[in-house]
């Protein structure tokens, strides 16, 4: 059957959860396609439509092993994401995708994985984290180093609490709070503090640009090689299929050739993201 790449499939919102409140609100949505659907890989994105407002490229945070819904954790940022935040259970949205490359998790079998995330940056790595956790026997040690500005800014709070029984979890907040028992400082500082071993380990870091930059620096400092470090890039996107011409970094279109890059690859590209 012919498929029109620009025509979204309709999906129903089956759950909405507020992760973070306030002006920089983050909500997690689960959606189910009304008809058909697609299978994605870890790290891929989907174009979400709010009809009348437009589209926004969002990374899929659920594991491909979960078949009955797609999950998106979304920071309220502009016109479309604000409209998404207004959705309720039962609302209908459009979804097209999946887009982009993926984390090469098959080739990571037998290795340890270090996840380093900040703020909403936990969303793109969540699908890898969930997948590797479900296939724990295939992988070595799993470690999460995650931080947010303040404790209320931490996403997936319950899931993180639950995670602590399954893998190493190191949390941090930027500035001290009376009740906070864990690390105080930036994610990069927490990396330097915990000094995870680079041996046979892949590190994935996602978050705001400045955090990615400092984390890569910290990881390099403790011995991670460029091809052991992975991250995701985001740029403004419209088509999702490498045609509309706006998300390029050099010859790469982030929507098609990204968003996942090893630092070894990314550092070869011009800094236009």
């Amino acid at each position: 059957m012919r498929t029109n790449v620009y025509l979204p499939k309709l999906a129903k919102v089956i759950s909405v959860k507020e992760e973070v409140g306030g002006v920089r609100s983050i909500k997690t949505f689960r959606t189910q396609f009304l008809d058909g659907g697609f299978t994605h890989k870890c790290g891929q994105c989907a174009m979400l439509s709010i009809f009348g407002k437009g589209e926004s490229m969002i990374s899929i945070s659920s594991s491909p092993l979960v078949k009955d819904y797609l999950q998106f954790s979304i920071l309220k940022m502009g016109r479309v994401t604000s409209a998404i935040h207004d959705l309720e259970v039962g609302s209908i949205i459009g979804i097209r995708g999946p887009y982009g490359n993926a984390f090469p998790i098959e080739s990571w079998k037998g290795k340890n994985i270090l996840f380093a995330g900040g703020g909403i940056g936990l969303a793109p790595i969540w699908s890898v984290l969930q997948t590797t956790l479900l296939r724990k026997k295939d992988y070595g040690d799993l470690t999460l180093i995650y931080g947010a500005r303040t404790s209320p800014d931490i996403v997936f709070k319950e899931e993180l609490a639950d995670l602590k029984s399954k893998m190493k979890v190191h949390l941090s907040i930027d500035v001290a709070e009376p009740e906070w028992k864990e690390f105080v400082g930036f994610v990069a500082q927490n990396i330097l503090d915990k000094k995870p071993s680079p041996e046979n380990t892949i590190a994935i870091t996602c978050g705001p640009p400045i955090m990615i930059k400092t984390c890569i620096k910290a990881l390099s400092e403790i011995g991670f090689k460029d091809d052991q470090i992975y991250t995701t890039v985001e740029n403004k996107m419209k088509c999702g299929i490498g045609k509309c011409g706006r998300c390029n970094i050099g010859r790469h279109y982030v929507c098609k050739d990204g968003p996942v890059y090893s630092w070894a690859e990314l550092r070869q590209l011009p800094q236009e993201y």
Binding site: Y6, F51, G52, G54, K238, C239, C244, G245
Partner: peptide
Amino acid sequence: HCFDINDEVESQTPLAGRRVR
């Protein structure tokens, strides 16, 4: 060949419009 994609709304209630390149 670069292009933009936008929604052009013709009616708010009930919502109706077109996605335009």
